[in-house]
Design a protein around this nucleic acid. Structure first.
Length: 499
RNA sequence: GCCCCCUUAGCUCAGUUGGUUAGAGCUGCAGGCUUUUAACCUGUGAGUCCUGGGUUCGAAUCCCAGAGGGGGCACCA
């Protein structure tokens, strides 16, 4: 990846070769601009119009039409076609792309400036809107200026940038070269914005809780560990916002949410990045039935606003996101897809035998989770809530009101991917203490993902938390669904990579 | 952590059974062209064939090891 730029002082007659030569050419043009009194990095370009608004203003004009409408626009040179004493330039800003027609007889002395421009440079231009005889809306430049000289070349103008590694490591090149990629991140931005709008419209209160935590909690995962020098103590990057948000509910913030990064020290895959964006919201006086209705409404509503319709395409099929989604209990889902009844096989060894499992350390809950992940999850393409999980996998969920050993919890799946998780929250402090003790036993048995005991959280529950429903929604995964992306890396600007 | 696949010019890609000096298009450079849009035409430059070993008279090509990337397994949201 290292392009060492070897400059030979004053060696104008022995040009550098290869990529170094390309860089040297650009620097020579930079020098020529400066020698001609041009500032290649001016401070601003005021009163410019966005290209999209120029395009909108002149839709439907006939080929050959001319207007008196003068526009001032700026952008990056995306393409260039020279014709001797005239040239066409494709200029692009964040809103769109438009053609510039530059003619020597109109620009006069300024026409020569074209010589020192390259693909990738930023320029500002002013001129009137015309339509070429091929019907292409264009700006006939009357004046222009360099706004930034690009010292490195852009990727291939036609093929774009295909190399996956470069696309992720140098996302700026991907964004320059690939419209599809730009669109993915526009959808992501709109999604986040519409999710916030939904929460705000429903009266939720946005908060920010600590990322650096003395004790991690709220999920079963391995944390990143760091150190605070002044306090000389170990801190963890949060794996969830759950426990702090519940303390907000205890404090009287009945409807609360946080949208931000969580960090989990686990493997990287098409569905996992070590840092990822999570939304958690909590609503007092609600249970997991209410939160399920909330998620259906949020996801279908956000999709309708972002995509214009509450449906997505995936695996060659159209998937409706409209409510109501399928609702199946975990037990029924596993029974249907694997023939195993977890309500019958309540003994760890019996279930292990039925599954042909060889992992001696896996407990009953773990086995249930494994068979579910393998035989059920990939089949949950249409939006589906899986309901009522075993207690041992859910240390913060309240016992089911009429199913012993189960908790009131659902996970929501779309396209075979889990996008959200929710419980009727456990608010009995003594029961919470018992669950922590259960988790402590798991830690002693060597489970690195078990939940550490959090005394201050117990104290908060002792203060009294009203009945509450809570949801965690994976924003990256939601964006995957809305964009059709096959991999999480396609919707994360700078995914985790090796050094 | 384990298994499989990939890595050739700045970009996108060819490269035959192991055979001379590794090619094309775009980009770059020089020139031509006042309505093109992957503009076109002429000329031209550009390589650590991922890295390090090995086999061979000879390696981009075969073998071994490593790196990076992709996919799968395992784990997780």
């Amino acid at each position: 990846m290292s392009d060492s730029e070897n400059q030979e002082a004053g060696a104008a007659d022995s040009p550098a070769e290869g990529f170094a030569g390309i860089l040297a050419e650009r620097r020579e043009k930079l020098d020529r601009l400066r020698a001609a009194g041009v500032d290649p990095f001016p401070h601003s370009f005021p009163q410019r119009e966005e290209i999209a608004s120029v395009l909108d203003a002149h839709q439907g004009l006939e080929a050959g039409a001319e207007t008196d409408s003068v526009h001032r626009i700026a952008g990056r040179i995306a393409g260039r076609r020279g014709h001797g004493k005239a040239a066409f330039i494709d200029l692009r800003d964040a809103t769109g792309q438009i053609q510039i027609h530059a003619k020597a007889d109109v620009l006069g002395d300024q026409y020569g400036l074209l010589e020192d421009l390259d693909l990738g440079d930023f320029i500002g231009i002013e001129g009137r809107a015309i339509v070429t005889r091929r019907g292409q809306l264009s700006i006939e430049a009357t004046t222009w200026q360099v706004l930034t000289k690009a010292l490195r070349p852009p990727p291939d103008k036609f093929h774009g940038l295909e190399d996956t590694e470069t696309r992720y490591r140098r996302r700026e090149l991907d964004l320059i070269a690939n419209e599809d990629s730009r669109e993915v991140f526009r959808v992501r931005a709109r999604t986040v914005s519409e999710v916030r709008r939904w929460l705000d419209d429903h009266g939720f209160f946005e908060v920010e809780t600590p990322v650096l935590q003395p004790l991690y909690g709220g999920a079963l995962a391995r944390p990143f560990v760091t150190h605070h020098n002044a306090l000389d103590r170990q801190l963890y990057l949060r794996i969830a916002t759950e426990l702090y948000l519940k303390r907000c509910v205890v404090g009287g913030i009945d409807k609360v949410y946080e949208l931000g990064k969580d960090f989990r020290n686990e493997g990287i895959s098409m569905k996992h990045n070590p840092e990822f964006t999570m939304l958690e919201w909590y609503e007092a006086y609600a249970d997991y039935n209410d939160t399920a209705a909330g998620l259906e409404d949020l996801v279908s509503g956000v999709a309708a606003r972002v995509l214009g319709k509450a449906e997505i395409e995936r695996y060659g099929q159209t998937i409706s996101l409209a409510a109501p989604w399928h609702r199946v209990t975990l037990r029924d889902a596993i029974l249907e897809h694997s023939g195993i009844d977890i309500d019958e096989l309540t003994d760890r060894d019996a279930l292990s035998n039925a599954l042909g499992n060889e992992d001696e350390t896996a407990g009953w809950g773990k086995l249930v989770d494994t068979v579910f992940s393998k035989s059920v999850e990939p089949k949950l393409v249409e939006p589906t809530f899986i309901l009522d999980y075993p207690e041992e996998l859910s240390p913060f969920a309240k016992q089911h009101r009429d199913k012993p050993g189960k908790v009131e919890r659902w996970e929501a799946f779309i396209g075979g991917v889990e996008i959200a998780n929710s419980f009727t929250e456990l608010n009995d402090p003594d029961e919470q203490r018992r669950r922590f003790e259960q988790q402590a036993a798991e830690i002693d048995r060597g489970d690195e993902e078990a939940q550490p005991f959090d005394e201050s959280f117990i104290e908060a529950l002792e203060q009294g938390m009203p009945p509450t429903g809570g949801v965690g929604l994976g924003i990256d995964r939601l964006v995957m669904m809305l964009t059709g992306a096959a991999s999480l890396r396609e919707v994360v600007l700078f995914p985790a990579m090796r050094d």
